[in-house]
Amino acid sequence: MSTIYFTKDHEWLRLDGDVATVGITRHAADELGELVFVEAKDEGTEVAQGDAAGVVESVKAASDIYAPVSGTVTGFNGRLSDEPTLVGEDPEGEGWIFTLRLSDAAQLDALLDEAAYKALLG
């Protein structure tokens, strides 16, 4: 059973062992509207917590996706290259964006659980 964490920047992270799958929340996807481009840092890139690890773009604007925790990018959801709208259709499932191998699991303690994230949305 994997554990899901959330950030105040409206990203989610699902942990399997020491690899996290990262995406944006339904709330974030609804706010952004239809996406036209999604990209993540190249595999092997080391990112520190809070660094821009990817980008999602609507017609109007580009928004960074921040690394919820520090680690090394291990993969990108290649389906998004041709189907960026998948993020809006299923942001917390098929529309995942990248995977990250954690370098400091202690950082997870400061993330939000589902109840805390829902409370943040109000």
Binding site: G33, E34, V36, S58, V59, K60
Partner: peptide, 12 residues
Amino acid sequence: PVQYPEGVMAEH
């Protein structure tokens, strides 16, 4: 108004 519920893509 920057957009209505339909969104920028559909409005365009």
